[in-house]
Design a protein around this nucleic acid. Sequence first.
DNA 1: GTTCTAGAAC
DNA 2: GTTCTAGAAC
Length: 288
Amino acid sequence: MNNSPINSSDDFTRVPIQLLYNPPQKGDFPSQSFNNWRNGLKNVLSSVESSSKRHERNPIVLFLNDKYVCTYDMYPKAKYHMLLMRRKINTHIGNLTHLNTLNDLDSSNLHELREFHALGRAIATQILEYHRTHEMSRNPPIIMKVGYHAIPSMEPLHLHIISSDLDSACITKREHVVSFTSPLFFVEAEAVEQHLESAFTSSIALTIRKDRAQSIRSYTPMMCVRCGKAAVSVPDWKRHNKQCNKLPTKKESSGRLNSLLGWRRAVVLGEDADGADLIKVGSKKKLA
DNA sequence: GTTCTAGAAC
DNA sequence: GTTCTAGAAC
């Protein structure tokens, strides 16, 4: 079984000390139905559950415990690129199970989200360790990033764990570059936590300013992750990215505000939300 | 002529 | 999310 036996306690943030990064073949992923690519990740989760039920090793899984699963990304945009998700089983209490996007989050999710993110960081740390021990000599230094896309293409809620090199044949479009380099579009896990911490009632849900996010993804210049040089085309960006010698820039000061994140009233008991945006004024909130 | 982007995909 | 490819950009 893939599930490495770790402590039997309910600490779901622990990761085996020696994680092996062994990416699968494309054919190992569940085949996508032609017109239904949006269900791709749901199919991945189903595949994880059925192999787990049969106690079979599943090559698309890097790590799993009773609550969460970390799978390889089918189209990795960097040397190391994984997705962390809440498993769709209820053997352990939690409220992230049925969430699909950042817009489903409110402060009642904060406790479990902290655990989710802590596991993501632990995996990132072990991947860095793997990199140091196996790959350091023939690769430039990297840092690991843990966060969400402001506009995800697939459900359910998934946390990207990705290395900073972005050296991948799967990067073919400017959106690929921007969605992992823009500090606005790539929403750090920490920024989500801090934003939720600033809500003072769980009836206030997080919301993404989607139009802004879209325009950021479409119009932000492609920049080198190491030296900041702007590129004129995707191939130009990739050529420079391969040869730039600078160290990757450390992540921007933690807790930095992400202006794509906002608030709205959460849906209550199946009633339609009025959808009104809320803005914060000092410590108070009022209707925008 | 070649490179590159961007829109359709039932 | 990707693949394919027409035609824009170089």
